[in-house]
Write a protein that binds this DNA or RNA. Structure first.
Length: 546
DNA sequence: ATAGGGTTAG
């Protein structure tokens, strides 16, 4: 340590044993106090530590105090900015300072970080201009710079540009090959990615993982599992990709088996498992895992909390929602992030706290389609169709373009609140103004809407005119409407259809027999009951027989 | 001191 100098050496010792933000603060104070701010080697080590501990502001303040920063200092800060996904402008600003105000021009170490920032934000325009600077500086053929360029073009969906750079290389390594494979996967070209992977001279765990994740994203779990079994060594990422794949395929048993096999689970692994349970409609399991994770002293991050909030939405427990809400307020999770806020709005809306949901929604810096839908769905569940329409109009005025899900929410709300004319209007608007072709769900909403309003003939006409095969939900809505309007004739037609489509659904038999019962046709009631028994159908608990 | 792989919302 003596080459650092008498005063710097002790601080360097402190730096190498520093593992917390608290200790970092003290070191920072010491550097300032001892007048070591111009010690380039020491400050460089400090910046690297800041990177590891995510102390972005300490790093930039230490950097700013250096009156003549060296090239490694610039490069270390550039890396820190890209590693922590700070806005591209901040990286660009620093890079331009380096180009124009520093006596040293950027070197091959400067480009990869800057290009990575462009990749994060998929900013092709900036990436391409950095590319031309790299060309002019003569560093474009440096393997690090070249690999970063391939990655940047891949992430910006310019797979062809990536391919050109890749093909023209004399020397490539595993990282280069993997960047190219990921570029193909990103463009949806699974075949080219697999071909490249098979032809790679040497693979490492990252290359295997990239390919496995590619198969998972394409829903080819068999190929993914084949690679998983073949590969020489696996790590956390390997397991997490497979867990994710199994969850998406609804195979929670296999996901859980891998999860249990994995030693040293990190937030990614827990997150995959928790959101897997949520997406498969098992919020209780998700909640159990969350508590287990806390016991293991793993700090939940933004992703975990979003998963937990989705679980709460499914459970509909207000007590739990309140606890999660206050937990997040106490944590360091940034509630201003769109995903977090949307999940908070959704959770409160679904758990019956519309007041809180509305407050959160109104205090959002920017409202997007997702948060509008969350809030509208909350009002819809609470039967406040008029509110839903109000928010929908406001959303359109704000320039947000509704999609198919948004229309499902509005149509459902109209149907539940009996806003027939409005529903018809929005159904037309969806088709004519937004060119969204109605899904079977949209049709089912409209059938329900018309049926509840007693306009059974129109509902029946609509269902018959559907360009696709109506699903049981649509026929079910119509049967419900027949029950409501005591239309025996149509009810029999619809019920016959439903008995063919889903012979084991007891609800349909119940509805038909209720229609007969309302007309005092007890013989028919008992006949339906006989058919039902004959087919071994049990009535769904909670359905009542008159 | 530099490059490649994993998680979130209606």
């Amino acid at each position: 340590m003596s080459f650092l100098g008498r005063r710097a050496a002790p601080v360097a010792t402190l730096l190498s044993s520093c593992h917390s933000l608290r200790a970092l603060e003290q070191i920072h104070a010491r550097i300032v106090r001892k007048g070591l701010e111009q010690h380039h080697v020491l400050v460089l080590r400090f910046l690297c530590l800041c990177n590891a501990l995510s102390a972005v502001s300490y790093a930039s303040s230490a950097f700013e105090r250096v009156s003549h920063p060296t090239l490694p200092l610039f490069n270390a800060l550039l890396k820190l900015l890209s590693d922590h996904r700070l806005p591209l402008q901040s990286s660009l600003f620093l890079f331009h300072q380096l180009r124009l105000r520093s006596p040293h021009p950027p070197d091959p170490f400067s480009y990869p970080s800057l290009l990575k920032s462009c990749s994060h934000f998929a900013d092709l325009h900036t990436g391409a201009s950095i590319h031309s600077l790299a060309l002019r500086s003569g560093f474009e053929s440096n393997i690090f710079v070249r690999t970063s360029l391939i990655d940047m073009y891949g992430k910006c969906c310019e797979v062809h540009a990536a391919k050109v750079l890749f093909s023209a290389m004399d020397f490539r390594n595993e990282v280069t090959w993997t960047a190219m494979i990921v570029a193909y996967l990103n463009s949806g070209d699974l075949a080219s990615a697999a071909e490249l992977f098979d032809g790679m001279p040497k693979r490492n765990v990252v290359s295997w993982n990239a390919m496995i994740d590619g198969f998972v994203k394409f829903g080819d779990l068999v190929s993914a599992r084949k690679l998983f079994d073949e590969m020489p060594e696996r790590n956390k990422v390997t397991f997490t990709s497979m867990i994710d794949g199994y969850s998406k395929a609804g195979d929670m048993a296999s996901a859980r088996t891998l999860f249990e096999m994995l030693k040293g689970k990190d937030v990614f692994s827990w997150s995959a498992m928790i959101t897997g349970y949520v997406q498969n409609g098992r919020p209780g399991e998700a909640l159990k895992l969350f508590l287990e994770m806390l016991e293991k002293n793993i700090k939940p991050d933004e992703y975990i909390m979003v998963g937990l909030m989705s679980a709460c939405s499914l459970l509909g427990s207000l007590t739990l929602a309140k606890w999660v809400d206050s937990y997040i307020a106490r944590s360091s999770i940034d509630v201003k992030r769109a995903h977090v806020l949307a999940a908070l709005v959704d959770m409160n809306a679904k758990c019956g706290n519309m007041e809180r949901a509305t407050t959160l929604f109104e205090t959002m810096p920017k409202r997007d389609l997702i948060s509008y839908c969350s809030l509208m769905q909350g009002y819809s569940i609470h039967g406040l169709g008029v509110k839903v329409i109000e928010f929908f109009s406001r959303m359109i005025k704000e320039g947000i373009v509704p999609d198919d899900v948004a229309f499902t929410v509005v149509l459902t709300a109209c149907s539940h609140a009996g806003l027939v004319e409005e529903g018809i209007k929005y159904f037309g608007m969806m088709k004519n103004e937004y060119s969204i072709s109605p899904s079977p769900d949209h049709y089912a909403c409209m059938v329900d809407l018309l049926g509840r309003a007693g306009r059974l003939k129109e509902a029946y006409e609509l269902i018959k005119c559907m360009p696709m095969e109506p699903h049981a939900g649509a026929w079910g809505a119509l049967l419900g409407a027949c029950r409501l309007n005591c239309d025996i004739e149509l009810g029999e037609v619809v019920a016959k259809k439903l008995f063919e489509m889903e012979p084991q659904n007891g609800g349909n038999y119940v509805l038909l027999s209720n229609i007969y019962a309302a007309a005092d046709r007890w013989a028919d009631v008992s006949q339906v009951r006989t058919i039902m028994r004959g087919r071994g159908v049990r009535k769904i608990p909670g359905c009542t027989w008159i």
